[in-house]
Amino acid sequence: MMKWIAIAALSSVAGMASAEAVAPADVQFDDYGAVEVSLSGTPGDAANGAAIVGDKKQGNCVACHQVGALADIPFQGEIGPALNGAGDRWTEAELRGIVSNSKKTFEGSMMPSYYKTTGYIRPGDAFTGKAASEPLPPLMDAQMIEDVVAFLATLKE
């Protein structure tokens, strides 16, 4: 009970959406890069996840990946594998790990880390080209990651 109140107070200071959000620095990856625990504590919304994956201003995953389920989105990229069937190939925990920090699953991957705030070379302030100091805001917040994971889990062949 005490702990709950403390976290609630802390997170309202930080302006986080959920009382139980796991901060980027506290995410626990297993040896294969999977993340077992929900980052937000609130189940993901697959429909919103689909919107994030396709939106240039949010996840913009289609910049690099083709997603058959989002066929109406033009100009899907060919850098990474098509995400069709990702929900068959990977568990929810694995998908959460890949989206949070793909390099823990795929060593040296070109895929950006969406829930990471430090450890960058010449970090910039979004797309301004100006310097920014760490910790940076993560590319997606905890709930966005959960929404994207929920969407990926629906991608079955």
Binding site: F75, I121, G124
Partner: peptide
């Protein structure tokens, strides 16, 4: 070959490993 910025991408990531591929449009 340095992976700059929050996307951690080097020139080589795009222009050596992926020339010929589409990145969005």
């Amino acid at each position: 070959y340095t992976r700059y910025g929050q996307f951690e991408l080097s020139c080589a990531n795009c222009h050596e490993d992926n020339f010929g591929n589409m990145i969005r449009a």
